[in-house]
């Protein structure tokens, strides 16, 4: 049934994770954690995986889907190697985050929530990254870049493109 997921090792490690909590009381409360783990292992949450989780945890599918679609953190589509999250928090907004977002959109030719064709970048918006003193800021796979302008934004993209060559 889970034919589209080629990598059984990944599936097994997810199953192991779920099983390791089977004994816990109220283990269905761990759904979000399991989804986070699944996304960590697979990169996103394909429908098959959500069904798999429902089955393994004995939770209705509707609930798993409901939860996965509710939270912004979960990706239901494959994502790129680098996730660029542009801070749209108040401090960054006041220091021109819109321009930075526009620069990324134009340079990568994608919209928010989309992934480039080469599967290198996914662009998302973030609430405050906690680097307001360095506004405007973006975070790329957890590394924060601050005091950006359009030019710096372009250079950062270039850097990552070169890195992955």
């Amino acid at each position: 049934m889970i034919s589209t997921i080629q990598n059984d090792a990944k599936l097994n490690s997810l199953r192991a994770y779920i099983n390791s909590h089977k004994e816990m009381t109220r283990n269905d409360s761990l759904l979000i954690r399991v989804l986070q783990k699944a996304q960590e292992i697979i990169g996103y949450l394909p429908p098959e995986i959500m069904n798999f989780i429902a089955q393994e945890m004995s939770i209705p599918r509707a609930q798993v889907w409901g939860v996965a679609t509710f939270y912004h953190y979960f990706f239901l589509k494959p994502v790129g190697k680098y996730i660029i999250s542009v801070c749209m928090g108040t401090a960054c907004y006041l220091k021109g985050a819109e321009k930075i977002l526009k620069a990324f959109k134009e340079k990568l030719n994608i919209n928010i929530g989309e992934t480039t064709d080469d599967k290198l970048f996914t662009l998302i918006e973030a609430r405050c990254l906690g680097a307001c003193g360095l506004a405007p800021a973006v975070s790329i796979n957890g590394t924060i870049y601050g005091q950006l302008d359009e030019k710096k934004a372009y250079n950062i993209i270039k850097k990552y493109i070169n890195q992955s060559k």
Binding site: G89, T90, C92, Y93, R127, C128, G130, A131, C132
Partner: peptide, 8 residues
């Protein structure tokens, strides 16, 4: 869960 975007 610090929600306010701009507070840290």
């Amino acid at each position: 869960d610090e929600g306010d975007p701009g507070a840290f």
